[in-house]
């Protein structure tokens, strides 16, 4: 097992190297250029230098006068030492900006992740147990609606009902108007939690459908298998048959997707964050990308790539944990 993990980690480093190069090349090819916009602004502001002169000077300052390979080389040589440079747009170190915003998204996504697991897996099992019954049809219809609803539409409807008509929540932001005046830390957390309700509801409703359908399909397959009949023939109660014998087998395909969800916890939810005015990583990375902020985007993308690779490794390990047939000796 140890050997397997080490091999996979070494392979992951190779993959990261190529992935980061491809991202860098793509960033350099983007039609938007941070330097060009800046030079344009400076030239128009009046002064002695023309646009072309500003361009040449700024290109040298930001390291864009070098070719693709040289530019990548200087980026990676610093990145290996942990220096990801300063964000062009936010003018503070990339890692600092990232640390400032990631927690907003992480908290949001972790809550949604837990709710998604807690709601969709039991619902999927219930729907499978009562296949073709009224319960099953109700659950699958709601799941289908959840899958089909675009998050921007659903979020807007929620805002219309609960913020505009009922006035229970604020339209934007993670904290209320009087957040600073609140006395205890508990009150501050509760205030933030109140503002997280609508985004959490939006993200959860649109995401439970897929996992629920997946659980239902797998559970149905397991319930029709011979060993479930054997378990019943032993005299086990239906509860034990479902929760022990069937569920352990349904877990096998589920853990493979859960591993793939790891990067999702950190990648942020761009549309939902933007709509609810949450200064999370999704919204921030979007801003950085449209303005051509190469250092920030590089760091963010590389971070996601690392998480994706760790996620697949994690799901492979979990797979071996739940399924004795794939264990490597």
């Amino acid at each position: 097992m140890k050997k397997f993990i080490i091999k996979r980690l070494l392979l992951a480093i190779m993959i990261l190297f190529f992935v980061s190069f491809i991202i860098y090349a793509l960033m350099r090819c983007l039609p938007t250029s941070f330097v060009e916009a800046l030079a344009n602004k400076k030239a128009q502001a009046g002064g002695s230098k023309t646009f072309a002169e500003w361009m040449a000077q700024l290109n040298a300052v930001y390291g864009l006068d070098k070719g693709l390979f040289d530019g990548y080389g200087s980026w990676i040589s610093k990145a290996i030492t942990g220096d990801f440079g300063e964000s062009w747009k936010f003018t503070i170190p990339v890692t600092q900006k990232f640390a400032d915003v990631i927690w907003y998204s992480f908290v949001l996504n972790v809550i949604c992740f837990i709710l998604e697991m807690g709601i969709s897996i039991p619902l999927g099992i219930l729907a499978a147990r009562k296949q073709y019954s009224r319960t099953d049809y109700t659950i699958t219809t709601i799941a289908l609606m959840g899958i089909s609803l675009p998050s921007f539409f659903f979020a807007t409807v929620l805002k219309l009902i609960f913020c505009v008509k009922l006035g229970w929540f604020d339209l934007f932001g993670v904290v209320g108007k009087y957040h600073e005046q609140l006395n205890t830390p508990l009150e501050k957390i509760l205030d933030m939690g109140w503002h997280y309700i609508l985004p959490v509801v939006t993200l959860t409703i649109v995401s439970i459908g897929a996992l629920m359908r997946y659980t239902r399909t797998n559970m149905l397959e397991v319930l029709n298998s011979d060993y479930i009949r054997t378990a019943r023939a032993k005299g086990l109660s239906e509860k034990v048959v479902i929760n022990k014998h069937a569920f352990r087998n349904t877990l096998i395909p589920i853990v493979t997707i859960v591993g793939g969800m790891l990067p999702g916890l950190f990648s942020g939810a761009m549309i939902t964050e933007t709509l609810f005015g949450i200064p999370g990583i999704g919204y921030t990375s979007y801003q950085a990308m449209v303005e051509g902020d190469i250092p920030f985007t590089m760091f963010y993308m590389l971070f996601l790539a690392i998480l994706t690779l760790l996620g697949t490794l994690l799901s492979d390990i979990l797979y071996a944990v739940v399924d004795p047939r794939v264990r490597v000796n």
């Binding site: 298998s225 011979d226 060993y227 009949r229 054997t230 378990a231 019943r232 023939a233 032993k234 005299g235 086990l236 109660s237 014998h245 352990r248 087998n249 096998i252 739940v322 399924d323 004795p324 047939r325």
Partner: peptide, 23 residues
Amino acid sequence: QEIRGKEISMIFQEPMTSLNPVF
């Protein structure tokens, strides 16, 4: 459920798939 496995028990025709693979 009290009778199954205790007073009447059954041997199935598919030994390859009749045992739970994860236990």
